[in-house]
């Protein structure tokens, strides 16, 4: 095996090239995973070493796009971790009701399944009309799919069980219109959703929020970048606003942990303290 120290340097140089040439900053991503994906791309790229990829990255945009596809992990599903949505119904919605109008930020929304899931919950709880949901991602391709809201019918059917476990009050099939293999989410769910491009590594705060959903995004970041993103969330949340992270993401290991209290540990729902 090649000396891993040398390859480590090569990877640094590759990430630096990507950043300086295209503006995408993967230098602060969780290293082990980024390395794996670079190695996978290396095996498929026909290059003999990571350094051999660097001139291609610099001079060939198409080559970079291929690499970027390896970097992009956008797996998601409707009502992923159903108990989280149940906790939102029981512990977050009652407080959202106390605001005449509230804003939700879904950071790293990928293809949008989570956003529609939350929209359904808010609709069933009768508070959707008061909401504005900002759904953001830095990957324009997935964001476009989120905006379209068209999914495989079979996948949606599979999600029916999740919907029920999430405390669904109606019939999940009422929320989409299936035509053969594809199904479109109901238009009423989209009314209060604004999709836009936002990069947690380089863009700034996003208005005054009451609820921030950022699930399974921070695991791709190293600690510095995590703290940056969490800084954005903390800055944009109102006092008493909620933060919901992925099932395996824990505020304990971060800089902002003392700014929040735990609302539901298993669902990873936190509340920004009234007084900092």
């Amino acid at each position: 095996m090649k000396d891993s120290g040398t390859e480590n340097i090569e990877i640094d140089l590759l990430l630096e090239s990507v950043y300086r040439r295209y503006g995408y900053d993967f230098r602060s991503y969780a290293r082990a995973s980024i390395e794996r994906r670079i190695r996978q791309f290396l095996a498929d790229s026909g290059c003999a070493s990571v350094s051999e990829m660097i001139p291609k990255i610099l001079h060939d945009r198409e080559f970079f796009s291929r690499l970027a596809r390896y970097f992009s992990i956008s797996v998601t599903e409707m009502f992923r971790d159903p108990s989280v949505y149940r906790a939102v119904r029981e512990k977050v919605v009652p407080l959202l009701r106390t605001w005449p109008h509230f804003k939700v930020w879904h950071a790293g929304c990928a293809t949008g399944e989570e956003v529609y899931s939350l929209a359904i919950v808010l609709q069933e709880e009768g508070v959707y009309a008061r909401a504005t949901i900002y759904a953001t991602d830095f990957n324009d391709e997935v964001l476009e799919r989120a905006r379209e809201g068209i999914y495989e019918t079979a996948k949606l059917q599979e999600a029916t069980k999740n919907y029920q476990q999430a405390g669904g009050k109606g019939s999940f099939s009422e929320y989409y219109h299936a035509r053969y293999d594809a199904a479109a989410m109901d238009g009423s769910l989209k009314e209060r959703i604004v999709f836009s491009s936002h990069n947690l590594a380089s863009d700034s705060v996003f208005g005054e929020m009451h609820l921030v959903f950022c699930r399974n995004v921070l695991i791709y970041f190293n600690r510095d970048l995590q703290n940056r993103a969490l800084g954005l969330f903390t800055e944009s949340l109102v006092h008493g606003g909620f933060l919901c992270l992925g099932a395996k993401e824990d505020l304990r290991f971060t800089e902002v942990s003392d700014r929040y209290e735990v609302v539901d540990l298993k669902a990873r729902i936190y509340k920004k303290k009234e007084v900092p």
């Binding site: 290293r31 995973s33 794996r36 992990i73 399974n216 695991i219 395996k248």
Partner: peptide
């Protein structure tokens, strides 16, 4: 996965050998 700094990294990358978690992914890291 294991990071060089002695911490654990979890990841939702695609399945390896039809599995997530994958043994190869842990061992290689």
């Amino acid at each position: 996965l294991v990071e060089r700094n002695g911490t654990i990294a979890l990841s939702l990358e695609g399945k390896v050998n039809w599995s997530r978690p994958s043994i190869d992914a842990l061992f290689e890291s």
